[in-house]
Structure formats: structure tokens, C-alpha cells
Design a protein around this nucleic acid. Structure first.
Lengths: 216, 216
DNA sequence: GTCTATAGACCGATAGAC
DNA sequence: GTCTATCGGTCTATAGAC
């Protein structure tokens, strides 16, 4: 744990700073990770409005005031969770074989999103809460992450339309939104709650309806 | 106003009841309609959590206490709005030409749902709020309406799978959920907010991706 | 002994309920 | 119009690291 944490702090800090400060920073970072992970889970479970800051503090096992030492508001907590999931998305994108067909890259992204949702790890934010939206739009880390991920996926969309595996008549932005919306598709949880199918079966069903339609 | 109200009350009431009581009932009914319509609009605009009972009272122009004379809780307000939209759905289903192909009936239903959402008249409820779900599941009018609509659509789904126009490998319940989920598809509002397409273009885009998939 | 971070009481606002 | 509960956010006394 210590080595992985110190390595992520970067060489400049690790050398210049005394050991004591480094240890302190490690603790702070570790706690921040625990906070963001708890927020991510609660956001996936109950959504932004129903998640309370007290719950987050209780989940992490720290006082609420300590939470506010790390994040100045509930909105910033949500933003941190979104930044985290975007970072995970970037890891996923980078891990996909670069020589695969664009359409298969897109399917892999959709599968990953749906598995995350079925595992209860996909934070869900209301698209209506204006204060939250304003906060997100002012968050550089979030915007940067979203832009990078969208660019990456957007490249595959254009390539897939160019090679004919994706309907070229659809605006690329529509395709991108359609892919993103699989992350909050209520069909997944409905099918899961019916208990008739395994998670993987559900994923394959929805991949089919998403890419090949209901008609097939 | 009075004539349109008496006609909707039905002949049996209009004849049997004394004028005073009938008039009172008309007023109550008219106010209840106004309440449910306001709830429907606010539910579509802000969702259940962000809608406040005070707003509803203000929108209708009555006191909050009067609201509680009609509906015992916020959850019941939402349920009434859902019952209303289910009733509108039944009218739509009955109005569709009975001799059309099942797949076209389904497309018509999806188009109607999406137009309703784009018009800001589709109430949106969180699938996570447990108190609301419990209330809905205890509401006979809601359950009856939902069952009738689902049966109606379910018949078309099976027929469309039988005649080969719908993928027979998909569980009918998955198709039903997929159709329903078009009522809260975030792609619609994203595309609408981008301002690049008319509502009807958006509807046709999403009908295409829904039935024919992204690949086509 | 000093100083930081914590725990938990506390506050103002607002919502639902009656 | 009032009452109560709850939420986001703050404040203060204190425990523990150095």
C-alpha cells in the first residue's frame, strides 16, 4: 500500500518532502479514495437526491466535518465520483485491443457500462438538478475526462460509420448519446429484478437490442 | 365550462343527482383535474424528488391544505398523475387502427411516448424511491391501468414475434420494458437541447435506433 | 506543550403533513 | 398557518501526534 501510494504522489514530492509529510499525504489520499468510492456506491444505489452527506460519512466511518475538509459541498462529492468513473472508463478504453473493428470497440464499451450498472457501481445523477449541473460544468477535471472519453468513442463511431458497420444516416452525436444512455438504462434493473436471467444474459440481450434493434 | 364538465360526468350522474350536489361534484372534479394536470407537468419538468407540494398548490392557485383534501400525500399526487397518463395511453391504444401490422402498432406507441416526453408531458418518477414504489404498488387504479396497457402492448409483441417482424429470440418482457423505457430516454432531451433537429426528426431517429438498431 | 484533525452537537432552511 | 423531521453545512471542545 505504501509503495503504490508514494508512487502515485510523483517523484518530485517523494524526494523533496520529508517522510512525515509523505505519510500524512498518503493517509489523506487513502481516505479521499475511500470517500469517493463510498460516494460512487451510494450514488449508484440511491441517486444524488436521495444520498445524504451523513450517509457518506457513516459509510466511510469518519465525521461529516472531516468530509468537508476534503470536499466543499455535496455537489463536489458527486463530481469526484464522476471523475473517478471517467478515469475507469479511460483505463477500459486504453485496454481494448487497438486493432479490433470499431463496431466491436463500441460494443465493448457498452458492455462495460452495463456490467458496471448491474454491479451497482455506476453513479447516477439527475439530469434535472440545476445546481449539480452548474457545478459539474464548472469542474475542469470532469469536463476534461468527459471530453477525452467522448473523443475516443467518437473516433470509433466515425470509423464504424465509414466502414459501414454502423448506420451512416445517424448523427454521430446521437450514437454517442445512445451509447452513454446505456449506463442508466432502466431495462437493466427491471430485467435483473425479474430474476429470470443472469447478468451476462441481460447484457447480451441489451447489446443486441442496442446495435441490432428489436427487429433484427 | 359547465357544459363540458357535465358531459364528461356521464348521463347517469347528470340525471340522478340534484343540481347542487352535481355542481359541487363538478367543481371538485374540475379542481382535481387541474391538480393532476399540474402535477403531471411538474413531474415531467422536475421529477418527483424536486417537485414540492407547495409548487403544486401555487400552480393550481389553491391552498396547500386544499390539496390535502383531495390527495392524502405527495405520493398519491404522483400516482394520480401516473393513472392519468395510463388513461391517455389507453385512449391512444384504442385509437390505433386494429388492422395495422403489430410492429407498426408498437412503433406508434413508441412515437406517442416520445412525443409526450418531448412535449414535457411525460411524468418521470425515480425507480429508486422506495416509499413511492410501495405507494404505487398499493394503488389499484395504477396497477389496473398498467396491467391493461401492458396486456394490450404485450399482445402486439407476441404477434410481431410470430409474424417475424420482431426478433423472436428476445423475451417479450424485455421488449415491453424496452418500449416503456423510451418514455424516459435521456437521448431525447439531449438531442432536443442540442437544437440541431426538430422534435419529429428526433422521434424518427430514436424509433430507428430502437427497432432497427445502431447498425441498420 | 502545541497544533491539527476529529467527533458530534448544532443551526438555518425547507419539505411534507395536518 | 403551524409543526416536526431532515438535510446541507458549520462550530467547538477535545483527543492524540509530534
Amino acid at each position: 500500500m505504501a509503495s503504490s501510494l508514494s508512487s502515485r504522489l510523483g517523484a518530485n514530492n517523494a524526494i523533496a518532502a520529508p517522510v512525515k509529510v509523505s505519510f500524512k499525504a498518503q493517509m489523506l489520499q487513502a481516505r479521499e479514495d475511500a470517500i469517493v468510492e463510498a460516494v460512487n456506491r451510494l450514488l449508484a444505489e440511491k441517486g444524488f437526491d436521495l444520498m445524504t452527506v451523513d450517509e457518506v460519512a457513516a459509510e466511510v466511518g469518519i465525521a461529516k466535518a472531516s468530509l468537508y475538509k476534503h470536499f466543499p459541498s455535496k455537489e463536489d462529492l458527486a463530481a469526484a465520483a464522476m471523475v473517478r468513473v471517467l478515469a475507469r472508463a479511460k483505463v477500459l478504453l486504453a485496454s481494448l485491443p487497438a486493432n479490433a473493428r470499431p463496431i466491436d470497440q463500441l460494443k465493448a464499451v457498452v458492455r462495460w457500462m452495463m456490467r458496471l450498472q448491474l454491479a451497482g457501481e455506476m453513479p447516477s445523477l439527475p439530469s434535472q438538478n440545476s445546481s449539480l449541473r452548474a457545478n459539474l460544468m464548472a469542474n475542469r477535471a470532469y469536463l476534461d475526462g468527459l471530453l477525452q472519453v467522448s473523443d475516443h468513442i467518437g473516433g470509433w463511431i466515425e470509423a464504424a460509420q465509414a466502414d459501414g458497420s454502423l448506420n451512416p444516416a445517424l448523427p454521430p452525436i446521437l450514437v454517442l448519446y445512445t451509447v452513454y444512455s446505456r449506463a442508466c438504462d432502466p431495462v437493466l434493473e427491471f430485467m435483473q429484478s425479474s430474476g429470470q436471467h443472469t447478468d451476462e444474459e441481460i447484457v447480451e440481450f441489451v447489446v443486441t437490442t442496442c446495435f441490432d434493434g428489436l427487429r433484427h
